[in-house]
Design a binder for these strands. Sequence first.
DNA 1: ATATTTTCGGACTTACACATCCTTTTATAT
DNA 2: ATATAAAAGGATGTGTAAGTCCGAAAATAT
Lengths: 144, 144
Amino acid sequence: MFSKTCEYAIRSTIYISKQSKEGKNVGLNDIAESIASPVAFTAKILQKLVKDNIISSIKGPHGGFSVSPEQQKKVYLVDVVRCIDGEQTYNGCGLGLSECSEATPCPIHFQFKEVRTRLKAMLENTNITDLIEKLERGETFLRL
Amino acid sequence: MFSKTCEYAIRSTIYISKQSKEGKNVGLNDIAESIASPVAFTAKILQKLVKDNIISSIKGPHGGFSVSPEQQKKVYLVDVVRCIDGEQTYNGCGLGLSECSEATPCPIHFQFKEVRTRLKAMLENTNITDLIEKLERGETFLRL
DNA sequence: ATATTTTCGGACTTACACATCCTTTTATAT
DNA sequence: ATATAAAAGGATGTGTAAGTCCGAAAATAT
């Protein structure tokens, strides 16, 4: 569904957010170790998230990454997915046909559309704040 | 959502089925040209579909591929997807966490589960016969 | 029997997602 | 000022999905 890169991105965002809420700034190595992702590769992903203002970074000693309360509130999963995988995650024809449209639908167009719409709605309705709250209440877990 | 290989597989199955219903046996080159897929690569995919008894093949002159009425009736999209992409299309954690389960769900487990379940249900409820009928009635189209 | 036409199947190549390495930039502390 | 610790960013390597090539096997027609 999502690329591996996007999975790392979501996991990173959630982990950093949780630490930020506890007042901790986290460095790259801490993040990579905590979400079981390759360090250098994770660095690249975090760079993209910073550029899209999904997370923040501070350089120099005692620097690291953080997600402000404002970011946690305004960032939805759809933003993270768009940043890494792009819109085609929930756009585009299920059979890869460029001519497929509402007017000239492919054989699985309407069935597929329903699923994609669900996925998009789910991503648009889930923000970081909600995810962190469930995590803090011990209702969900972020471990390998 | 599906791999490119799987898209070719579904397009092939639909095209061959339509031709079979019109009493025509179709060869590899015809298929590849009609669904705009690479010939040699399509051959590999068709081999897999034949092995899973989704389509039939006849060797030698005037040979080719076909989908019998029985196959059209009993084959559902889920079978084609399983044959090419495997179960992980609608199984597995959305964040790629191996420990994720109903008891220890990942942060997006339940939202994601709902979407996956929809996708699976859609694939399980759509068979080739239905797709061909809509195609014949001019309600859907199989073109690039 | 032989030539022909087709699918089958193994070995190989290519493109791209995934991942690493190393140098530069930025900030901090002494 | 200098040393140090961190992220930024370019260049490079790796693994897997996507795609090619070519000979073998099978069926048919002459």
